[in-house]
């Protein structure tokens, strides 16, 4: 097939040239970019039955198996996924208990400052989401500061035109100035991208004030290429995925809850996401942005990822996906 002979650069150029044709991912699923996997990473799967106090132990177990970066004296930014108001009990956002457990773990390791920062995609009012999710009282109790990345100062960084059509992006200053950025996504299916995990979660580091609610300009050029390129500009230094109660079906906001009972840890986002995809019984090599990232930002092949803690087979569940994404199934 012709697309298998294209290079990664050619694929990205083609994606940029197709700007305005469609936001649908189907065109990309039919024409996957080439896969050049490589490198090594470790990911850890830790069981956590619920969002109770056991989480503090679960985070420590994850850190023991895949150590986070040294945070002693550093500024740590936790970036959860608060895409929209969680409605009707749907698990659309990172559970606040996971955020607090991670914050305390980083404090125990000597972090000078830990802040929670997010730029919701579909709502201007981030604080309404904090309240609806139950995060507000926990932030107060644990003396954690929240930054609405959508309204943060803008820091210009060079970037591929694939993201927005120009040769730079504006990052939220709190993220640009973070010593250690920790991605804390929810394990979710995504009706355009296939899966919303660590790499997709990085959309939130681009302020809505500059890119809108939603950041359609990023979808407009090419969603998968934008996910990859944003991570090339600023990837998370460490990832903790909330897969205790995940979302399947019509994610990232209208899916249904699926209890998986795991947290997934790692320091290379593509590897973490590949492990999560396999837990969801989705093939990571069929998710275009993971193919683009493979071997550049981290590996996605099972042979290149050392699995620590629970095995994938022990916790994997077959997630429902929308019909047009059925070819993502393993």
């Amino acid at each position: 097939m012709a697309h298998l002979r294209t290079t990664r650069r050619e694929f990205l150029q083609a994606a940029a040239a197709a700007a305005g044709a469609s936001a649908l991912p189907g065109c990309l699923l039919d024409s996957l970019p080439p896969l050049h996997d490589g490198g090594f990473a470790a990911t850890a799967i830790i069981r956590a039955a619920d969002y109770g106090n056991v989480l503090f132990d679960a985070v420590e177990q994850g850190f023991a198996l895949v150590p986070p970066p040294d945070v002693n004296g550093k500024r740590v930014v936790l970036k959860p996924n608060f895409v929209d108001l969680p409605r009707d009990g749907r698990p659309a956002v990172t559970n606040p208990a996971v955020i607090v457990a991670a914050a305390e773990a980083f404090r125990r390791r000597g972090a000078a400052e830990v802040i929670v920062a997010e730029g919701p995609a579909l709502q201007r009012d981030a604080y309404e989401i904090l309240d609806a999710s139950g995060l507000t009282p926990l932030l107060d109790e644990h003396r954690l500061r929240f930054v609405d990345l959508n309204l943060d100062d803008l820091i210009r960084r060079p970037a591929s035109p694939v993201i927005t059509g120009v040769d730079h992006v504006f990052l939220a200053a709190s993220v640009a100035r973070a010593d250690v950025l920790v991605g804390m996504p929810k394990m979710k299916t995504h009706h355009w991208a296939g899966a919303s995990l660590s790499m997709k979660n990085q959309f939130g580091i681009l302020p809505g004030a500059a890119y809108g609610w939603p950041r359609n300009r990023l979808h407009h050029v090419d969603l998968n290429a934008a996910v990859f390129e944003i991570n090339r500009v600023r990837a998370p230094d460490y990832c903790i995925v909330d897969g205790i109660v995940a979302m399947e079906g019509n994610g990232p906001i209208q899916g249904t809850g699926r209890k998986v009972g795991v947290l997934v840890f790692g320091d290379k986002a593509p590897a973490v996401d590949a492990t999560c995809a396999r837990i969801m019984r989705l093939a990571p090599e069929r998710i275009p942005y993971l193919r683009l990232a493979a071997g550049v930002l981290g590996p996605i092949g099972e042979a290149n990822i050392e699995q620590r803690g629970e095995t994938i087979a022990a916790v994997a569940q077959s997630f429902d996906v929308l019909d047009h994404l059925s070819n993502l199934r393993m």
């Binding site: 201007r124 059509g165 809505g208 500059a210 890119y211 809108g212 609610w213 939603p214 359609n216 300009r217 407009h220």
Partner: peptide, 13 residues
């Protein structure tokens, strides 16, 4: 009206 020039039109802008 879009949030940014050349983009799709949305309700708030």
């Amino acid at each position: 009206w879009p949030w940014t020039p050349g983009d799709f039109s949305w309700v708030e802008p």
